[in-house]
Design a protein around this nucleic acid. Structure first.
Length: 306
RNA sequence: CGGUAAGUUGAACAAUUGGUUGGUUCGCCAGACUGUAAAUCUGGUCUCUUCGGAGCUUGGAGGUUCGAAUCCUUCCUUGCCGA
């Protein structure tokens, strides 16, 4: 198969949680001499395995995976760090004459690579944030209006996180928040990109989520994982921040909810999460949606030929 | 069969014990996304709508009243207690 000299090609496999990204990507990577770069905001953390749905060594079937376990869950990881590491990984894969498969469900992370967005190069200032977070969103918004009326115009004026970040940028640069650039930096390789999305009927997805949750709960595996990382120093607060299964299990461990409630919440919230993911993905008309391996294989084959 | 408490919504609760509700929470639907993105946030959710509004509602039927989800009568349904 003619897959050498295929540098600067990138294949993206995306889809909502539980849709089967892992299985599909490994099958494709095997078939087309690829390696996987994960695009998942939780799987980057060491120790978050079962709850984040991380691939197991066995499942990898010899396919190398990048961007797993690259961060300590005690510290916040961010898109910018992700972008940097992912670019490096892709470059390396290309160098090895393999096909990079960018696989994951974190839309923002995917976009940071696919669109090569330029994110203001200002590190989070935790001290400043702590101060800003004391203010109400109204106060923050008024503040931003004064500091950067342009950004204030399109920002979500109710979203404290965005407001704090915007103010942070202006305060540390003394300049308005730069516009997002989708053009990317000239030194970055320009990829030819194929984006494949996995579609599932809502009914099917619901079933998959349920099944997967039951499997994770078996033998207390997921509960024990959360117990373990909590013992290792991850506060309940941090677990709450990590979201979904980590938040729900933490609540259960704190006796705030019953086991049954925990299970129900995880299922409901997972479903809600898939909807948010789809809202994000729907915007991108470049994504080609498939439901079977065969369809995906055809697309990849064609893509690598041209 | 007798006694008793209740019936609003997709679900659970509210509505100065007569003052003209569609309120809260959850769910559901849609959406946003400039270094936390599984996070964070927005809108809608009785009906119709030309998006300015208009109409209809508290198990059913009747009644009292200027005015009823609230009071009365009766029927239906459900829970509990007793036979």
């Amino acid at each position: 198969m003619e897959i050498r000299s295929k540098n600067n090609k990138l294949i993206v496999i995306l889809g909502p949680t539980s849709s089967g990204k892992t299985g599909l990507s490994i099958k494709l990577a095997k078939k087309f001499n690829g390696q996987v770069v994960s695009a998942d905001s939780r799987q980057v953390y060491k120790g978050l395995d079962i709850g984040s749905g991380k691939v197991t060594k066995k499942e990898m079937a010899g396919i190398r995976h990048y961007l797993l376990d690259v961060a300590n869950p005690k510290n916040r990881f961010s898109v910018t760090q992700y972008q940097k590491l992912a670019k490096k990984a892709i470059t390396e894969i290309n160098k090895n004459n393999k096909i990079p498969f960018l696989v994951g469900g974190t839309g923002f992370y995917l976009q940071s690579i696919v669109d090569n967005i330029l994110i203001p190069n200002i590190k989070p200032n935790l001290k400043l944030r702590k101060e800003l977070e004391k203010k109400s969103t109204e106060e923050l918004f008024i503040m931003l209006q004064k500091l950067d009326p342009v950004r204030a115009q399109n920002i979500d004026s109710h979203n404290p996180r965005r407001l704090v970040r915007a103010v942070e940028i202006v305060l540390s640069t003394g300049k308005p928040v730069p516009k997002v650039s989708f053009e990317g930096c000239p030194t970055c390789p320009e990829f030819s990109i194929l984006q494949i999305g996995i579609t599932k009927l809502p009914k099917e997805l619901k079933k998959l989520i349920h099944k997967r949750l039951i499997a994770r709960l078996k033998n207390n595996a997921m509960i024990n994982e959360v117990k373990k990382i909590h013992k290792q120093g991850l506060s309940f607060n941090r677990l709450k921040e990590l979201g979904l299964e980590y938040r729900c299990v933490a609540q259960y461990l704190q006796n705030k909810i019953t086991y049954q409630e925990m299970q129900n919440r995880i299922e409901i919230e997972s479903l809600q999460f898939t909807k948010r993911q789809m809202t994000w993905f729907k915007r991108d008309k470049r994504i080609i949606w498939v439901s079977t391996y065969t369809e995906a294989k055809k697309l990849v084959k064609h893509f690598l030929k041209t």
